[in-house]
């Protein structure tokens, strides 16, 4: 480890932009971005599964509010949502005295809330679309077996629908990673925030942003790889026989 540090400081000796100090900024930025994106995706996924099922409900009072939610969050820019949750809520009188303020005081939680609600809305629609597209034959076969609606949902529709939604969901994960670049407007030191800091400090936009773009590319590559692996395993039955 010490050797590594020594090697690193040697390699950076005559580099004005990428010194130990700025690299720690990038390192912290990487941690913040991954944390923010990962948590919002996990929570968003957990929210989206029941919502997507309820979204296809026959009852108007279940279906419509969820449609309204996804419509609003897909119909407005994430930046606007983030601004409203971070700067907007403080204008509610007396919010500083409630327990909510503990979470709202830090920039992390408002950003997490905005990202989660946004990705949950998109994921709900992706899953809902996949559920709707379930082949009629599968449903009829399940009915013919005498399955109840609940059992059919659990054994037939959901497993096949979520598998089919996988490629579209992989895209959503990548979009979320890139959308997280706006976190720095609410003072979170994410990857883009670190790049902006280095840019402003050393007047080196090209170096600062090129470096951060390379990190985003690596992250995206990891996501792509993960989803390719999942698709290979879970969608094996759909692959053409070679």
């Amino acid at each position: 480890m010490e050797q590594l540090f020594a090697w690193l400081s040697d390699a950076l000796a005559d580099n004005t932009v990428f010194n130990f100090n700025t690299l720690t900024f990038y390192g912290r930025g990487l941690v913040n971005t991954v944390q923010l994106v990962f948590l919002s995706l996990v929570i968003g996924l957990v929210l989206a599964v029941p919502l997507s099922i309820a979204r296809g409900s026959k009852h108007k009072w279940i279906k419509l509010p969820i449609f309204f939610y996804t419509y609003v969050f897909r119909g407005t820019p994430l930046l606007v949502q983030l601004y409203m949750i971070y700067y907007g809520v403080v204008f509610i009188d007396g919010i500083q005295d409630t327990w909510l303020w503990y979470f709202l005081k830090e920039p992390f939680y408002p950003a997490l809330a905005a990202f989660t609600l946004n990705t949950a809305a998109y994921t709900t629609e992706i899953f809902h679309g996949a559920i709707k597209a379930t082949a009629k034959g599968e449903i009829e076969a399940a009915r013919a077996y005498g399955m109840s609606h609940r059992l059919m949902m659990r054994r037939i529709i959901i497993p096949s629908a979520f598998r089919r939604a996988l490629p579209a969901y992989g895209n959503e994960v990548i979009f979320m990673l890139h959308a997280s670049a706006i976190a720095s407007v609410v003072t979170i030191m994410d990857l883009t925030g670190a790049a902006r800091f280095v840019y402003a400090r050393y007047y080196a936009p090209f170096d600062a942003f090129l470096f951060v773009a390379a990190i985003y590319l690596c992250l995206t590559f990891a996501i792509l790889y993960l989803f390719r692996y999942l698709e290979k395993r879970l969608l094996a039955h759909l692959r053409p026989v070679s």
Partner: peptide
Amino acid sequence: DMVLDMEAGR
């Protein structure tokens, strides 16, 4: 933005 956040108490 900064002044707003100081007013908010952050």
